[in-house]
């Protein structure tokens, strides 16, 4: 009995470590109260039908300067980054028949990174050859991203804008990425549909988010915010998490078809994230617009 309890407790405890990283870390050390006002009709940048949540933008903006510090508040995201980056690269390489061993494996592919933050994903994708547009509604993030890219000499087209504004402008991409943003928007279906519009025929959309399960509730909300207090209370709203079938339905409504899926779990012994068939908490979907 004691042993079972202990095992359960350990799993629970370690689960939080993983959740700590899974969750957008952006919110990690910020403690301002959560604002509930949501901008539906007019986004901050004047786009129509914006799905941007103003309170989320404000919180992430405050962290812009520390985003690239691997030991700073974004440390968990730095740990998580290689596995999602690896997934994106491998999906792209498979779909567009490239060689993953080359240092320019994504050469010539036009990629949109929605909610790019300070460019943790955009910058490495550009370094392996992609033409990346990094979009984030938080101007402070875009400033931090531009500064860092200039410092390390990588060319990324960073823009302080929204998915909706880019779609309105008729932008088209080989790959549209919505990594850890779906659970931060006000209307998942609308957001996904507008993103999907920008996928060229034969192109891909890849989305990563958190599942709306009891396990995710226990780990992300109760554990991380209330028990261990790694995140300020109210950081995540469980009801904004998205189940894979819901995300798939939104992708399908946008004219895409799901061609791949993977969970992401944390291995505490190796202190590493890895892909898994377990999609209960963190997961990613890949969808294709038929050519």
């Amino acid at each position: 009995m004691v042993v079972i309890f202990l095992v359960f407790f350990l799993e629970f405890f370690l689960g939080f470590r993983l959740e700590k990283a899974a969750i957008h870390t952006g919110a990690a050390r910020s403690s301002q109260p959560r604002h509930r006002e949501i901008i539906m009709a007019q986004g901050p940048l004047g786009a129509t039908d914006s799905t941007v949540d103003a309170a989320e933008i404000e919180r992430f903006s405050k962290l812009a300067a520390t985003w690239w510090d691997p030991r700073g508040p974004m440390a968990p995201l730095h740990k998580f980054n290689p596995v999602r980056l690896g997934y994106v690269r491998d999906q792209a390489v498979l779909h567009f028949r490239r060689d993953a061993k080359r240092l320019d494996s994504l050469k010539g592919l036009r990629i949109l990174d929605i909610g790019c933050g300070a460019g943790l994903l955009s910058e490495p994708l550009a370094r392996i050859g992609a033409e990346v547009v990094g979009a984030d509604p938080a101007a402070a993030n875009i400033e931090a991203a531009k500064l860092h890219a200039a410092e390390v000499g990588v060319a990324v087209d960073y823009r302080a804008t929204t998915a909706e504004a880019l779609a309105d402008a008729g932008e088209r991409f080989d790959i549209v990425l919505a990594m850890e943003v779906v659970e931060h928007v006000t209307d998942v279906n609308l957001f996904v549909r507008r993103c999907a519009e920008m996928v060229k025929p034969g192109g891909l959309m890849i989305a990563a988010t958190l599942n709306r399960t009891l396990k995710a509730f226990a780990l992300a909300i109760v554990g991380a915010e209330y028990v261990l207090r790694w995140l300020p209370r109210g950081t995540h709203q469980w009801d904004k998490f998205v189940r894979p079938d819901e995300l798939e339905a939104a992708l399908t409504a946008g004219g895409l078809s799901r061609i791949g899926e993977s969970g992401v779990i944390y291995n505490p012994l190796a202190d590493q994230w890895r892909l898994s068939s377990d999609m209960d908490v963190n997961y990613m979907l890949t969808a294709e617009r038929p050519a």
Partner: peptide, 20 residues
């Protein structure tokens, strides 16, 4: 592995993995 992901080869990922 790190260079092929476009990540920093002198960064913490490479060094920690090597040390471990």
């Amino acid at each position: 592995d790190t260079a092929r992901l476009g990540l920093d080869i002198g960064g913490g990922d490479v060094l920690e993995r090597y040390q471990r």
